[in-house]
Design a protein around this nucleic acid. Structure first.
Lengths: 145, 145
DNA sequence: GTCTTTATATGATTTTTATCATAAATCCCA
DNA sequence: TGGGATTTATGATAAAAATCATATAAAGAC
């Protein structure tokens, strides 16, 4: 469904979000990689994308790291992360990979896929980091294993 | 969503299905590749998977090729093709790529994804080749461009 | 039976994605 | 003001997916 990079990106962001609930401390990429079971250097690269897209903030130097202000958690939606890393292909792309596929000249599965993609899009645009971070924090959901 | 191989596989099968509506003639891989805009050799490889999985039948020699008996078109579901080529990962895999992710120990997006994956699964298991071939045949849907 | 046509099988190449490694820049603190 | 810590930036490597190429086998036509 998503690329590996996107999966890691979501997990990393969620881990940062959960931490933001409790403290202002910034989180290093080493911590993140450990907590979400991801290769460290690759994770660093993904974090760069996310900071460039202004989804997470970063600070250099000692006690630096990545963070998201607590007040923003309910305003950042899952869709932003997905689009930042994987683009809008999932929403807009044709299920059979046709370049042009729309209601006018649809592929055989266009209508059926549209229903599902729209639903996916809605889910992603309506799910906030806060909501998911709360689930993690309450021990109901998990980021590894 | 699907791999390239799977996209080609679906398109190829649909093209064969549409032809089956009209004639008993077998269809060569060259024809298929032309009609669905796919690389010929790669298409051949995919067709082998589909024949091995008994989704399409094949015949060697002159006027040989691939075909599906007309009577079977309404019994073959899209899901069979997807599973043959991409496996059941789309249905069963975790949205965040966790090895173990289930109701007991769910990832943060488990529930939300389950709804969508289940819907996708239902759509695929209920859509027959016949239905899609009819759409193609009536000129309502297209396999290229 | 030989020749042509077509699928089958297999392996090589290319491209993309994922991962790793290193150098540069920035910041904090002493 | 300099040095260590840490992000940032960039490029190299590895792995996987997609594509290409070639050789083999089977079937029908003559």
């Amino acid at each position: 469904m998503f690329s590996k990079a996107c999966e890691y990106g979501i997990k990393a962001t969620l881990y940062i979000s959960e931490q933001a609930l409790h403290s202002e401390k910034k989180i290093g990429v080493k911590d993140i990689a450990k907590e979400i079971n991801s290769p460290e250097a690759f994770t660093a690269k993904i974090m760069q994308i996310l900071t460039k897209k202004k989804i997470v903030k970063s600070a250099k130097g000692p006690s630096g790291g990545f963070f998201i202000p607590k007040e923003e958690l309910d305003k950042i939606m899952l869709s932003e992360i997905v689009e930042a890393i994987d683009g809008d292909h999932i929403y807009k792309g044709c299920g059979l990979g046709l370049d042009q596929c729309n209601a006018d000249k649809p592929c055989p599965v266009h209508d059926k896929f549209k229903l599902i993609r729209d639903e996916l899009a809605e889910m992603l645009t309506k799910t906030s980091l806060l909501e998911l971070a709360n689930g993690l924090d309450s021990g109901l959901t998990f980021l590894k294993r």
